[in-house]
Amino acid sequence: MDSSNVFQLQSNILFWLIIALFAWQGYQRGLMAELLKLGFIVAGFFIGRPDMLGATLVKALNGFWLALQFLIHGGLAAIATGNFNADTLSQIFDEIGKLPPLVPRNSAEMAMFLAMLFLIALGYLASKFIKPTLPGLGLVAGAFNGFFLSYIFLPKLPKDLPFEITDQSVTGIFKQLVAFSIYALELILTIIGRLLRFMFSIFGDWTVPLLLLLVVVLILSSIKPTKKKNSNGGGGG
C-alpha cells in the first residue's frame, strides 16, 4: 500500500472514530448540551479563520491592550485629575506607541487557533452543567459535532507519514510502533514548544509565573471535597 493511500485510510478511520466518539457522548449528555457545544464550536470556527472573525478578534485584542496601556501609562491619572492637555496626551501616546502589540503579526494565526481551541474547550465544559435530555437526538447532534470538528481539524493533520508501512512481520510492526511513538512524542514537544514561544512573545517574563498560577488553580479546583460522616447520629429521639 503506498503512502498516500495509507494516509487516506488513516484519515477515514479517524473521521469515523471521531464521529462515533462524539455520537456516544451526545447520547450520554443529551440534545441541549450538544446544541450548546455546537454553538461554541461554530463560534470557535469563525474565530479561528482570519477571513471571518479571526482578524477582527486580533484587532480587538490589540485595541483593548492599547487602551489598557494608555490607562497604565498615565491615562488613568489624566482622567482622574482632568489633566487632558495636549502635551500629556501626546507624551502618553508616544510612550505606548513604542510598545509591541499584544498579539504580534507573526503570532496572529496561532492566537486565532488558540482562541478557537479555548472556545471549543469552553463549550465542552459548559455542556457538562446541562441536565441530559433527549438522548436519541443528542446522539444525532453529537455525531454532527464530531463531523464538524473533523471538518475543522482533519485538514490540519500532516500529509506526510512519519514512517513507511512496508514490513508486515512482528519485528516490522514493532519497529513501526516505536517510530510512531517517537513521532508522537516529537509532535507533542513541538506543539508545547510553539505554545510556550507564543506565550513568551505575549507575556514575556511573566509567562512562567502565570503558568504556575494556571496549573495550581486548575488542579486545585479539580479536587472534590470528601463528604464528612456525621458522627453525632442526628440527635436521636
Partner: peptide
C-alpha cells in the same frame, strides 16, 4: 496534603503529569 478525591482517568493522568512537571 490537600484532602479530597482526585479525579481519575485521562484527566487524573494529565493533572499528575502537570504537578510532576511543576
Amino acid at each position: 496534603s490537600f484532602k479530597g478525591k482526585p479525579v481519575g482517568g485521562a484527566r487524573g493522568f494529565i493533572y499528575n503529569l502537570l504537578v510532576g512537571v511543576m
